[in-house]
Design a protein around this nucleic acid. Sequence first.
DNA 1: TTGTACTGTAATAATATCAGTTACAGTTCA
DNA 2: TGAACTGTAACTGATATTATTACAGTACAA
Lengths: 142, 142
Amino acid sequence: MNSEFTIAVHSLVYLAYVPERMASSEALADNVGTHPARIRKVMSVLRKSGYVATREGAGGGYRLTAEPNEVSLGDIYRVMAQGSLMPSWCSGDPEMDCVVGSNMKQVMFGIFCTAEKRLETHFNAITIRDVLGQIHDCVDCE
Amino acid sequence: MNSEFTIAVHSLVYLAYVPERMASSEALADNVGTHPARIRKVMSVLRKSGYVATREGAGGGYRLTAEPNEVSLGDIYRVMAQGSLMPSWCSGDPEMDCVVGSNMKQVMFGIFCTAEKRLETHFNAITIRDVLGQIHDCVDCE
DNA sequence: TTGTACTGTAATAATATCAGTTACAGTTCA
DNA sequence: TGAACTGTAACTGATATTATTACAGTACAA
């Protein structure tokens, strides 16, 4: 999996943490630990998916529009990283003569698809609010 | 995830399909669609884990030693690809001042760990025999 | 006992993916 | 009108992945 999913989750949690004001791509990049341009790319997807509002121009930036307890990591996974479980390279060749070699690609595809559904089910149960809660729990433990 | 998991599963299924004879790395590479040296590398791990026997020299190769219905994809995942769900790059920095930025790495780590456990649970329920069965089902459907 | 056919393993090369960066047009506010 | 932003694409460098080569070691068979 590439890290856009992580960046998206981190950004949304941060926006949920400062709901009253807009955060610029630079502020988010600082917090996430990456480059502002990368943040803008990720946020662009989240805007198109309806999770954040953006404003260009001076004083602009990003603001969470969805309710933190109504956005799950599953939602984010689907828009940022769906299909990333299956390796890009897959074995077998449908054209070949052997039963195993010719059907393996299809069978493994099915296995990876159901595996990914499992993963999504797991992520569906975790909301942005939950993640923010876990972060606050970290502090309480210190 | 890199594709060694897929290569391992494919190879074991193939060996389960031809249990009476040894398969050379070249025969397996042909069936899987990769280079013999890569097969040997993967099989070396499977040998050390006790799933296959190998024999060097003329007429040598690989043979399945485990029972196809006793080896699960979860077993294979653990030896070939454990930890591959979490992206190599992760956000946040424990040293920083912000609660979100400083704890996110740890929280996401936990989320990815439990997600991977879910994945393993799913893979645990699928055996090499099941995969071979699915391949035979493919043929019946044609 | 020697040649042939294998595995084991490491090193290297080629390729693909990922992350960082730069650049600039477009937008908004003051 | 200038400053502070986003949106997006292009490019660069780093890292991960796969392919390939090479060769030492092992086992069988003539």
